[in-house]
Amino acid sequence: MDAILTMKSKYIRDLLESGKREDSRELYDFRDIKIKKGLIPHAEGSAQVDLGDTRVIAGVKMVLESPHEDTPNEGNFILSVSLLPMANADYESGPPSPEEVELSRVVDRGIRSAVAIDPTSLFIEEGKVWSVYVDVYVLNYAGNIFDASSIAAMAALENAKIPEYKDGKANYENRKTKLKLNNMITSTTFAKIGDKIILDPNADEEAAMDARFTVQIDDKQIRALQKGLSGSFSMDEINKLIDISFDKHKELKGIIEKS
């Protein structure tokens, strides 16, 4: 396996030297993004996202809980991303790897820092609030699960409807009101391979990459950044990639909202 990976990495590097990509995309192109919303009716909201051959599914569950002592008027937001063993031959079950923890936390931070959900809107009555659980499962790994997971989480939240609250209980049979989103963030992840930078790396490109950079933004502001792996970026590169992310934002946002 290692020998094949090394060979492929060299191929990817050589291609990039002449400005080309394996799947003939431009350097800053996303693969096709397909979003299917609401395919898990048991969930309050759901969305499956295909980003090229990467497939993830996100589900939203809303649960009645008591608020935290220090925030009696606010609900909770809990997001996690799991790599299912089915998604890749190398994935194994067991406690989350550091990579998985990083992935979860980065996707969570983007949505949280953009205050996409107003926590006070999750307050029901004294001692009762909604907790919003967003769980993203990676079903097929083909690179860039950061962006796929973020898109799926936002799309599932977009799709979510709040269960009816009746006699102190949640009535999951009857969901009426849409979960209110205050903000929409989009995520763009870049890979640096040698001194070349590309958007939305596929699996082979990720195997060859030296560094990774994820930019999460809303209409006006940078909301979260994460540089990953041992490679480096110059400040100029970082500023340029942030600019590209703002260029991509509208288009991505449109895809998430309209699908």
């Binding site: 950079f213 979260a224 950044l225 110059s234």
Partner: peptide, 11 residues
């Protein structure tokens, strides 16, 4: 001045 770590959330 290469950037080896950059993490951020907020605005």
């Amino acid at each position: 001045n290469d950037v080896l770590l950059l993490q951020f959330d907020g605005g």
